[in-house]
Nucleic acid binder design. Sequence first.
DNA 1: ACCATAATCCAAATCGTTTTGGAAGTCAAG
DNA 2: CTTGACTTCCAAAACGATTTGGATTATGGT
Lengths: 339, 339
Amino acid sequence: MKITLKTIADEAGLSVTTVSRALAGYDDVNEATRQRVMEIAERLGYQPNLTARHLRSKQTSTIGMVIPRTAYFADSFFMELLAGVGRQASAHGYDLLLSVQPPGDEELAAYRRMVAGSRVDGIVLARVLRHDPRIAYLQQANHPFVSFGRSETSDYPYIDVDGARGMRRLVQHLAENGHRRIAIILSPWELAFTTTRYEGYLEGLDAIGVQPDEAYVAEGDLTQQGGRDAAARMLALPEPPTAIIACNDLMAFGVMEAVEQRGLRVGHAVAVAGFDDVPAAAHAIPPLTTLRQPIYAIGCQMVDMLVRLLRGETLEHAHVLIEPELMVRASSGPQPAQA
Amino acid sequence: MKITLKTIADEAGLSVTTVSRALAGYDDVNEATRQRVMEIAERLGYQPNLTARHLRSKQTSTIGMVIPRTAYFADSFFMELLAGVGRQASAHGYDLLLSVQPPGDEELAAYRRMVAGSRVDGIVLARVLRHDPRIAYLQQANHPFVSFGRSETSDYPYIDVDGARGMRRLVQHLAENGHRRIAIILSPWELAFTTTRYEGYLEGLDAIGVQPDEAYVAEGDLTQQGGRDAAARMLALPEPPTAIIACNDLMAFGVMEAVEQRGLRVGHAVAVAGFDDVPAAAHAIPPLTTLRQPIYAIGCQMVDMLVRLLRGETLEHAHVLIEPELMVRASSGPQPAQA
DNA sequence: ACCATAATCCAAATCGTTTTGGAAGTCAAG
DNA sequence: CTTGACTTCCAAAACGATTTGGATTATGGT
């Protein structure tokens, strides 16, 4: 049988109100009766019905997160983010409500269920699109959220990796290794970070005095296959690039395949670089030069920001930019002329 | 302003009851009025308050999972399990409630909050202990659950990897490569699977006609450091083992370190094998021979079982044993005499 | 005209908690 | 003896849905 406040109230000869207030620690209940109530609650193993509490108090101590059911990103991205979010949510006394959904309408519906269904106090989201319906919805519903990634169109709390700065740094590194014909394989344009990374690439070229060449710009689908195909096309050009940047590590692995299939050596004839620093990057052969995103730490920090919002505090820094760390490894090789 | 059933009822000139039943598809409401109700609900963007619904109906369409906040296991274990559980929960229309907790009392408290607090319909748990208080609690509370791992003491639905069979297979493989002095570094005894794996190891030795030697049995803490220390001690014996099995891959990596620190070559002088087949195992140098646990698939299957329980169906197979696949790689090398 | 049946609708109870707005009793000061 | 303050308790109203047990009206058969 369920132990409710009423059970305790009957046992103690008190009203439900008093029992509730005794357990909640209000000071309008006699210390002796509070002790008695607590003792009975303990003895009966009372556990409050959280659903009822949430309904009444309109707070759930729960943070929501919707994870796309897709192989679009390598799983590791969301898993690592989730680890950070979960870890920090726990530290603040929050649970996590997860909904794994196919992207599109069902994904948005999951957000609506969470928000309008009063299941969560706040939401963490990632993989921001340039025109993101989820963000539009959350803003219109005026529900607290923090996102990993930004879009230029509107203002909300976010953490993002400074993709432009990372790309400038990477182009500079490649130039220092003697490269001038530097290609890039972009992520799909609908993703918000594509723009900033592309801009960084262009600024990087400008800084080293190289004219951008649109033959050296391709759009990939973030898969290894996509990276390989795009790289294969570029390497077949009359003047192929000597360095290829991919917008994520998975595509970079594909680029490495394409380079080797052409009988060239990665890190010698052709430099290859990625973005993310997934665990496999350091173990690739040769190890992959890449821009590291501290995803776990970002997950933690997002929760910190969100919890502050939920407490009604104002964020001094609602827009956090993190510089990706350039991990120089063998794939970006030394001089291209050496090969 | 919140849109509730009452909002719609007022708008339509109906009672809350009728609106509720119209939306729920009962056949005691006129088709014309149902259309009208649905149209109004659509127009106002009605979203049912799930908290209220759960309170009344005592169903949450949510599966609970508590993840220990510890570095005890490599993160990848729970993350991969979570990916499988999330994926399959989604397929059945369930959400996931996650609570990340430090192991011990707080962990158990999280289970109690979920169960007695009526937040979840069922629970998935992993990392079963020999005398597991969580299982004792769930059984006593008579709450549906499925576990990854079994303990001999009591009966409940589980999926487990057949550790004994895997170990027998592994010992046989090492024997075929000429090894007789085969050591094992066990996981802590409180973990339920330690016993079965140890038994499998003993049976394996018996099958190849080797007397077990307790100098070749150590207990590790599942960390790389722990594996290294235990292996270092064994390798310092007058008659050191020529093959070392670790109860997880992380410890096996530590064993490999210890072997090399002694100036021996893994896969030549000393064979090393692990358990799990984490992603890093295939990329280790040399690649690690190990027993593969299909964790993602197990996560999916646990949810399938749980959902069947929640539907009130009886499980034809409440105890599922999965044979771990032996991944033979270079670390278990050829003949030890070759070295 | 009368009754049984079916088709629609709804008031009220329920889920288990928190919160509001007092009520009852005690005590000391005036 | 009255008054006000203080302490301790509680009935009832939320919260927003679902469900129970009719009530009302229309329909059709006799």
